[in-house]
């Protein structure tokens, strides 16, 4: 596939946004159970704003993907069948929940609604946060499923696609949350950076798993099934057009294998290895510089990873567009 930057930014940016929120809410939940010190409301409010910023940026990026952005509103219509439509529903829903959650913190509106048998108070923000969490995961699911549901793009058609969206979003979000905490709530740095480290390593596992899986994929569609002629030696002589077409522009990345390999190395190092190192350093030194670097590095790595996610997905239509003559 030809990687479109709009989609790369959309998915990575909202991933960060979702991740930050999840980090915030993890902190609040832990705090509610007394496992972490309670934080100022402003900490959450600013965190939410940060998260929203990423989500909005992602949303804007997504508009660049549309041929007719002015009609974007129509895209919620088919939520019954279309994961894209569902994403279009889930994203604002999450943003709304997130905004409410942030707002509640901002204005300090956080009455206790009830108390759990354990004595833990169930506050408004906890309820809102739980809802937003569910929506965040729903959003991850939708985003991932947009790709995972396409059966014949075999590289995508796997639970790993969804899992990795969650892990990569989570990792980058937690890393940024750690960086944020290093300024706003230093006592959380170890906790958040620790989690970021864990999720990053999980992400790495997911990443390696999907790499391994994808290199082993045996394409279900082959030239013989594509044109219905069984023969070990079939070569395309012409694709019926020479100056290119939508089919050659949209589904081919046009880069060399070498460049792809290079990028793969880059994403391995930047999205996982370096962040791990930087998080460890940041965690031990609680220095925001290191953590911020870790985030920037990881985000760059994830951009590359997402680019590869598209570039390395082989679309069966490409079987029909292999030669110009």
């Amino acid at each position: 596939m030809h990687p479109a930057f709009s989609v790369i930014f959309l998915t990575t940016l909202i991933g960060v946004g979702q991740g930050i929120f999840l980090a915030l809410f993890t902190v609040e939940s832990y705090a509610a159970f007394g496992l972490l010190p309670v934080q100022e409301d402003s900490y959450y409010a600013i965190g939410c704003a940060l998260s929203l910023l990423f989500l909005i940026a992602g949303l804007i990026a997504s508009l660049f993907h549309l041929g007719r952005p002015e009609r974007a509103w129509r895209s919620a219509a088919q939520w019954r069948t279309s994961w894209l439509s569902r994403e279009v529903v889930a994203l604002p829903a999450f943003m709304g929940a997130l905004a409410l959650y942030g707002l509640a913190h901002l204005i300090g509106f956080n009455p206790t609604l009830t108390t759990l048998p354990s004595g833990t108070p169930v506050t408004v923000t906890l309820i809102l946060g739980t809802g937003a969490t569910l929506l965040a995961f729903a959003l991850f699911l939708c985003t991932g499923m947009i790709y995972a549901c396409l059966r014949f793009i075999q590289a995508w058609h796997s639970p790993l696609t969804v899992i990795n969206y969650v892990l990569f979003g989570g990792a980058s979000g937690f890393t940024l949350a750690a960086a944020h905490a290093s300024i706003a709530a230093p006592d959380l740095v170890i906790f958040l950076a620790g989690w970021a480290l864990v999720i990053t390593l999980l992400g790495l596992t997911g990443w390696l798993a999907s790499r391994t899986r994808n290199t082993r994929i045996k394409p279900k569609s082959t030239l013989p099934t594509a044109i219905g002629i069984k023969h070990p030696h079939i070569a395309q002589a012409s694709q019926g057009l020479m100056g290119g077409s939508f089919n050659t522009r949209e589904f081919f990345h046009g880069n060399t294998q070498k460049m792809l390999q290079g990028l793969q190395g880059f994403s391995f190092v930047c999205a996982f290895v370096l962040p791990t190192v930087l998080l460890v350093i940041g965690l031990s030194s609680a220095s925001s510089g290191w953590l911020l670097t870790a985030f920037i590095c990881q985000y760059a790595g994830l951009l590359a990873e997402r680019w590869l996610f598209f570039a390395q997905a082989r679309h069966p239509q490409n079987l029909y567009y292999q030669a110009v003559a």
Partner: peptide
Amino acid sequence: QCIGCKYCSWACPYGAREFDETQRVM
């Protein structure tokens, strides 16, 4: 109604859809 998101073209294994580059619909 089409918003030109091209998603359907990804979903067609045959490469049968074509995005119109000036009207920006599928």
